[in-house]
């Protein structure tokens, strides 16, 4: 099985994010780990549509459809990444707001001290 090295690197970055979420005790570091995870995903999606020496997905004058399809990178993945960046932004914004409230209520960012709710 032949997996390009770039995909492997994206997956390593994704795993770094997951590792951070699981092991870190600090709320801000958890949020940063989620950011890393999302960015790894965005990179991965972009790389699926990547083509070596591909042109930007804009039809130039005098270019026919077949020639465009043969030389351009995939525009759909770029649209997907754009959407996913916006979603990630809204989620991170809400998370940071919640983190500020957490600090107001508990006076700490350490999640091992934030445990009012019993198991």
């Amino acid at each position: 099985m032949n997996v390009p090295i770039i995909y492997t690197l994206c997956m390593i970055l994704f795993s770094v994010g997951i590792y951070g979420i699981v092991t870190k005790k600090n709320v801000v570091k958890i949020i940063l780990s989620i950011l890393i995870m999302e960015n790894a995903l965005n990179l991965f999606i972009l790389m699926i549509g990547y083509r070596k020496d591909g042109i930007a997905p804009i039809v130039q004058p005098g270019m026919d459809a077949a020639g465009f399809a043969a030389s351009s990178v995939d525009p759909l993945t770029q649209a997907m990444v754009l959407t996913s960046i916006v979603i990630g932004l809204s989620m991170i914004a809400l998370m940071v707001a919640i983190a500020i409230r957490l600090y107001e209520r508990f006076g700490t960012f350490d999640i091992s001290e934030i445990k009012d709710l019993k198991e």
Partner: peptide
């Protein structure tokens, strides 16, 4: 936005 709610939502 009280203690319990913020903790749960996080």
């Amino acid at each position: 936005t009280m203690r319990e709610e913020i903790e749960a939502t996080f």
